[in-house]
């Protein structure tokens, strides 16, 4: 056996129906089944969840923090995408 440590899994919990799954931490587990079970035992002891996703941490593809400017800054000046950009008369402003 090469690797002695159990792989790391990232845990995402939906706190109630209608909400997104949200990252809440991680666990170590040898397989997906146990990862789900211990995620339940670790992260939902106080009724924090109704659904759990686990993803093996090395399977997550993350954006490069160094690429932050080219990835996220270009959205900065597209202010016309936001509803507040448009001034409408008060009577219809709830639109």
């Amino acid at each position: 056996m090469e690797r002695k440590e159990w792989p790391l899994w990232e845990v995402f919990v939906r706190s109630r129906n209608g909400l997104d799954h949200k990252h809440c931490g991680s666990v170590h587990a040898p397989d997906a089944k146990l990862a789900l079970q211990v995620a339940r035992d670790v992260y939902t002891r106080r009724q924090e969840g109704v659904s759990i996703w686990v993803v093996q941490a090395d399977h997550i593809v993350a954006s490069d923090p160094d690429a932050k400017p080219e990835l996220f800054d270009p959205a900065e000046d597209k202010i016309y995408r936001h509803p507040t950009f448009y001034q409408l008369p008060d009577e219809v402003n709830h639109m």
Binding site: W6, V27, A29, Q37, D41, R45
Partner: peptide
């Protein structure tokens, strides 16, 4: 054997 099982 592991912290996770302590919880379980």
């Amino acid at each position: 054997p592991v912290l996770e099982e302590d919880m379980a």
